[in-house]
Amino acid sequence: MVKIGIMGLTGCSGCQCEILNCQDALMKLIGKVEFAYFPLAQDNNTFDEEFDVMFVEGSVTTEEDEAKVLKAREKSKILVAIGSCACYGGVQAQKNDEASLEEMLKTVYGKTELFLKVSKPRAVSEVVEVDYELPGCPVDKRQFVYAVSSLLNGVKPFFPKIPVCHECKLSETECLTLKGIPCQGPVTYAGCGAPCTSQGVGCQGCRGNCDFPNFKEMLKILQENGLSEKDAVAFLKVFRGYQGREIKVNDEERRNEKGA
Protein backbone atom coordinates (compact mmCIF):
# COMPACT_ATOMS: atom_id res chain seq x y z
CA MET A 1 0.00 0.00 0.00
CA VAL A 2 1.14 3.52 -0.76
CA LYS A 3 2.60 5.16 2.33
CA ILE A 4 1.90 8.81 2.90
CA GLY A 5 3.30 11.10 5.55
CA ILE A 6 2.16 14.56 6.51
CA MET A 7 4.53 16.46 8.80
CA GLY A 8 4.50 19.91 10.30
CA LEU A 9 7.53 22.08 10.96
CA THR A 10 7.33 25.64 12.27
CA GLY A 11 3.97 27.07 11.27
CA CYS A 12 0.38 27.32 12.34
CA SER A 13 -0.70 23.82 11.20
CA GLY A 14 -3.39 25.52 9.17
CA CYS A 15 -2.44 23.62 6.04
CA GLN A 16 -2.71 20.29 7.86
CA CYS A 17 -6.14 21.36 9.09
CA GLU A 18 -7.04 22.24 5.52
CA ILE A 19 -6.07 18.73 4.48
CA LEU A 20 -8.41 17.37 7.17
CA ASN A 21 -11.11 19.51 5.59
CA CYS A 22 -10.83 17.50 2.35
CA GLN A 23 -13.27 14.96 3.78
CA ASP A 24 -14.49 13.49 0.50
CA ALA A 25 -11.01 12.91 -0.78
CA LEU A 26 -9.77 11.52 2.52
CA MET A 27 -12.64 9.06 2.70
CA LYS A 28 -11.70 7.79 -0.75
CA LEU A 29 -8.05 7.53 0.22
CA ILE A 30 -8.56 5.55 3.41
CA GLY A 31 -8.13 1.92 2.52
CA LYS A 32 -6.06 2.73 -0.54
CA VAL A 33 -3.19 4.49 1.13
CA GLU A 34 -1.65 4.28 4.55
CA PHE A 35 -1.19 7.46 6.48
CA ALA A 36 1.92 6.22 8.23
CA TYR A 37 2.81 9.58 9.68
CA PHE A 38 0.32 12.33 10.45
CA PRO A 39 0.82 13.36 14.10
CA LEU A 40 -1.67 16.19 13.93
CA ALA A 41 -4.52 13.82 13.09
CA GLN A 42 -3.70 10.41 14.56
CA ASP A 43 -1.87 8.43 17.24
CA ASN A 44 0.57 5.69 16.33
CA ASN A 45 2.84 7.36 13.86
CA THR A 46 5.89 5.70 12.49
CA PHE A 47 8.77 7.49 10.96
CA ASP A 48 11.10 4.58 10.35
CA GLU A 49 9.79 3.21 7.08
CA GLU A 50 10.07 4.46 3.53
CA PHE A 51 7.41 6.91 2.40
CA ASP A 52 6.04 7.15 -1.10
CA VAL A 53 4.91 10.72 -0.64
CA MET A 54 5.74 13.05 2.22
CA PHE A 55 3.96 16.36 2.62
CA VAL A 56 5.83 18.94 4.64
CA GLU A 57 4.20 21.97 6.17
CA GLY A 58 5.93 24.87 7.89
CA SER A 59 9.28 26.58 7.61
CA VAL A 60 12.59 25.18 8.77
CA THR A 61 13.25 27.34 11.82
CA THR A 62 14.49 25.13 14.66
CA GLU A 63 17.26 22.58 14.86
CA GLU A 64 14.58 19.94 15.31
CA ASP A 65 12.86 21.07 12.09
CA GLU A 66 16.06 20.67 10.18
CA ALA A 67 16.71 17.17 11.51
CA LYS A 68 13.13 16.17 10.75
CA VAL A 69 13.14 17.44 7.21
CA LEU A 70 16.53 15.90 6.45
CA LYS A 71 15.26 12.55 7.63
CA ALA A 72 12.02 13.01 5.73
CA ARG A 73 13.96 13.59 2.53
CA GLU A 74 16.04 10.51 3.10
CA LYS A 75 12.97 8.37 3.73
CA SER A 76 10.68 9.69 1.00
CA LYS A 77 10.50 9.02 -2.70
CA ILE A 78 8.56 12.23 -3.31
CA LEU A 79 8.67 15.22 -1.02
CA VAL A 80 6.03 17.92 -1.40
CA ALA A 81 6.19 21.26 0.37
CA ILE A 82 2.72 22.51 1.26
CA GLY A 83 1.77 26.00 2.26
CA SER A 84 3.68 29.21 1.89
CA CYS A 85 5.89 28.60 4.96
CA ALA A 86 7.27 25.38 3.50
CA CYS A 87 7.45 26.76 -0.02
CA TYR A 88 8.92 30.22 0.59
CA GLY A 89 9.57 30.61 4.31
CA GLY A 90 6.21 32.21 5.03
CA VAL A 91 5.31 35.33 6.95
CA GLN A 92 7.99 34.55 9.50
CA ALA A 93 10.64 34.99 6.81
CA GLN A 94 9.53 38.40 5.57
CA LYS A 95 12.27 40.30 7.40
CA ASN A 96 15.02 37.76 6.78
CA ASP A 97 17.02 40.10 4.58
CA GLU A 98 16.55 43.16 6.77
CA ALA A 99 17.37 42.07 10.29
CA SER A 100 19.80 39.71 11.99
CA LEU A 101 18.55 36.75 13.97
CA GLU A 102 19.59 38.49 17.20
CA GLU A 103 17.56 41.57 16.34
CA MET A 104 14.54 39.42 15.54
CA LEU A 105 14.77 37.46 18.76
CA LYS A 106 15.25 40.59 20.85
CA THR A 107 12.28 42.30 19.23
CA VAL A 108 9.96 39.34 19.70
CA TYR A 109 11.18 37.67 22.88
CA GLY A 110 13.30 40.38 24.49
CA LYS A 111 16.24 38.00 24.70
CA THR A 112 18.47 36.00 22.36
CA GLU A 113 18.65 32.74 24.36
CA LEU A 114 15.65 30.46 23.88
CA PHE A 115 14.98 26.93 25.06
CA LEU A 116 15.23 25.88 21.39
CA LYS A 117 18.04 26.41 18.98
CA VAL A 118 16.62 28.55 16.20
CA SER A 119 17.79 29.96 12.90
CA LYS A 120 16.20 32.35 10.47
CA PRO A 121 13.10 30.73 8.99
CA ARG A 122 13.91 28.96 5.74
CA ALA A 123 11.85 27.36 3.02
CA VAL A 124 12.09 23.58 2.84
CA SER A 125 13.74 23.90 -0.57
CA GLU A 126 16.54 25.91 1.01
CA VAL A 127 17.42 22.88 3.14
CA VAL A 128 16.62 19.79 1.05
CA GLU A 129 15.54 19.06 -2.49
CA VAL A 130 11.80 19.46 -2.95
CA ASP A 131 9.88 17.69 -5.71
CA TYR A 132 6.73 19.79 -5.75
CA GLU A 133 5.48 22.91 -4.07
CA LEU A 134 1.86 23.65 -3.25
CA PRO A 135 1.91 27.17 -1.88
CA GLY A 136 -0.92 29.13 -0.29
CA CYS A 137 -1.88 30.25 3.14
CA PRO A 138 -3.44 27.82 3.68
CA VAL A 139 -2.82 25.34 0.86
CA ASP A 140 -5.71 25.09 -1.58
CA LYS A 141 -7.83 21.99 -1.08
CA ARG A 142 -8.52 21.35 -4.75
CA GLN A 143 -4.86 21.68 -5.62
CA PHE A 144 -3.94 19.33 -2.82
CA VAL A 145 -6.41 16.71 -4.00
CA TYR A 146 -5.25 17.12 -7.60
CA ALA A 147 -1.61 16.76 -6.55
CA VAL A 148 -2.36 13.66 -4.49
CA SER A 149 -4.36 11.98 -7.23
CA SER A 150 -1.70 12.77 -9.83
CA LEU A 151 1.13 11.49 -7.66
CA LEU A 152 -0.76 8.33 -6.70
CA ASN A 153 -1.26 7.71 -10.41
CA GLY A 154 2.40 8.16 -11.18
CA VAL A 155 1.93 11.42 -13.08
CA LYS A 156 3.60 14.68 -12.24
CA PRO A 157 1.02 17.36 -11.44
CA PHE A 158 0.81 20.35 -13.76
CA PHE A 159 0.70 23.81 -12.20
CA PRO A 160 1.10 26.68 -14.64
CA LYS A 161 2.29 29.71 -12.67
CA ILE A 162 -0.27 32.16 -13.98
CA PRO A 163 -1.34 35.29 -12.07
CA VAL A 164 -4.30 35.50 -9.69
CA CYS A 165 -5.88 38.02 -12.09
CA HIS A 166 -6.78 35.05 -14.28
CA GLU A 167 -9.10 33.48 -11.73
CA CYS A 168 -10.24 36.84 -10.40
CA LYS A 169 -11.28 38.16 -13.79
CA LEU A 170 -12.94 34.95 -14.86
CA SER A 171 -15.08 35.05 -11.72
CA GLU A 172 -16.10 38.56 -12.82
CA THR A 173 -14.77 40.41 -9.84
CA GLU A 174 -14.31 44.11 -10.26
CA CYS A 175 -10.60 44.93 -10.52
CA LEU A 176 -9.46 46.11 -7.10
CA THR A 177 -6.29 47.65 -8.46
CA LEU A 178 -8.38 49.91 -10.66
CA LYS A 179 -10.59 50.69 -7.68
CA GLY A 180 -7.54 51.95 -5.80
CA ILE A 181 -7.19 49.05 -3.38
CA PRO A 182 -3.65 47.64 -3.00
CA CYS A 183 -3.77 44.19 -4.57
CA GLN A 184 -0.95 41.82 -5.47
CA GLY A 185 -3.02 39.76 -7.90
CA PRO A 186 -1.00 40.61 -11.03
CA VAL A 187 2.26 39.25 -9.59
CA THR A 188 0.93 36.33 -7.55
CA TYR A 189 0.66 32.68 -8.55
CA ALA A 190 -2.96 31.65 -9.09
CA GLY A 191 -4.64 28.45 -7.97
CA CYS A 192 -6.57 29.72 -5.00
CA GLY A 193 -9.67 30.72 -6.97
CA ALA A 194 -9.21 34.37 -5.93
CA PRO A 195 -11.34 34.22 -2.76
CA CYS A 196 -9.88 37.40 -1.22
CA THR A 197 -10.55 39.72 -4.13
CA SER A 198 -14.12 38.47 -4.48
CA GLN A 199 -14.66 39.69 -0.92
CA GLY A 200 -13.14 43.07 -1.70
CA VAL A 201 -9.80 42.38 -0.03
CA GLY A 202 -6.73 42.91 -2.19
CA CYS A 203 -4.60 39.86 -2.92
CA GLN A 204 -1.96 39.49 -0.21
CA GLY A 205 0.39 37.41 -2.35
CA CYS A 206 0.28 34.32 -0.15
CA ARG A 207 0.96 31.97 -3.03
CA GLY A 208 4.22 33.61 -4.05
CA ASN A 209 5.45 34.71 -7.46
CA CYS A 210 3.79 33.92 -10.74
CA ASP A 211 6.08 33.32 -13.74
CA PHE A 212 8.19 36.39 -14.55
CA PRO A 213 6.33 38.89 -12.31
CA ASN A 214 6.56 42.55 -13.30
CA PHE A 215 7.39 43.99 -9.87
CA LYS A 216 8.45 47.32 -11.29
CA GLU A 217 4.99 48.15 -12.57
CA MET A 218 3.38 46.53 -9.52
CA LEU A 219 5.36 48.79 -7.20
CA LYS A 220 4.38 51.80 -9.25
CA ILE A 221 0.71 50.88 -9.11
CA LEU A 222 0.81 50.15 -5.37
CA GLN A 223 2.30 53.59 -4.87
CA GLU A 224 -0.42 55.16 -6.99
CA ASN A 225 -2.87 53.36 -4.73
CA GLY A 226 -1.54 55.08 -1.65
CA LEU A 227 1.41 53.09 -0.34
CA SER A 228 4.87 54.56 0.11
CA GLU A 229 7.64 52.74 -1.75
CA LYS A 230 8.84 51.21 1.50
CA ASP A 231 5.36 50.05 2.45
CA ALA A 232 4.75 48.72 -1.03
CA VAL A 233 7.91 46.61 -0.90
CA ALA A 234 7.04 45.42 2.63
CA PHE A 235 3.51 44.55 1.47
CA LEU A 236 4.86 42.48 -1.42
CA LYS A 237 7.30 40.72 0.87
CA VAL A 238 4.83 39.57 3.52
CA PHE A 239 4.36 36.05 2.20
CA ARG A 240 7.06 35.72 -0.42
CA GLY A 241 9.92 34.69 1.84
CA TYR A 242 13.07 34.12 -0.20
CA GLN A 243 11.14 34.98 -3.37
CA GLY A 244 10.95 38.54 -2.11
CA ARG A 245 14.55 38.93 -3.26
CA GLU A 246 13.22 39.13 -6.79
CA ILE A 247 11.65 42.47 -5.94
CA LYS A 248 14.19 44.92 -7.26
CA VAL A 249 13.82 48.57 -6.52
CA ASN A 250 16.45 50.09 -8.76
CA ASP A 251 16.54 49.90 -12.53
CA GLU A 252 20.07 48.58 -12.78
CA GLU A 253 19.12 45.36 -11.01
CA ARG A 254 16.00 44.95 -13.09
CA ARG A 255 17.68 45.09 -16.44
CA ASN A 256 18.84 41.48 -16.50
CA GLU A 257 15.63 40.00 -15.20
CA LYS A 258 14.59 36.81 -16.97
CA GLY A 259 11.51 37.10 -19.13
CA ALA A 260 11.26 40.85 -18.75
Partner: peptide
Protein backbone atom coordinates in the same frame (compact mmCIF):
# COMPACT_ATOMS: atom_id res chain seq x y z
CA UNK B 1 7.39 47.71 -19.71
CA UNK B 2 4.07 48.51 -18.09
CA UNK B 3 2.43 45.19 -18.88
CA UNK B 4 1.91 43.01 -15.82
CA UNK B 5 1.30 39.94 -17.95
CA UNK B 6 -1.88 39.29 -15.96
CA UNK B 7 -3.88 38.16 -18.99
CA UNK B 8 -6.88 40.34 -18.18
Amino acid sequence: ERCLGCGT
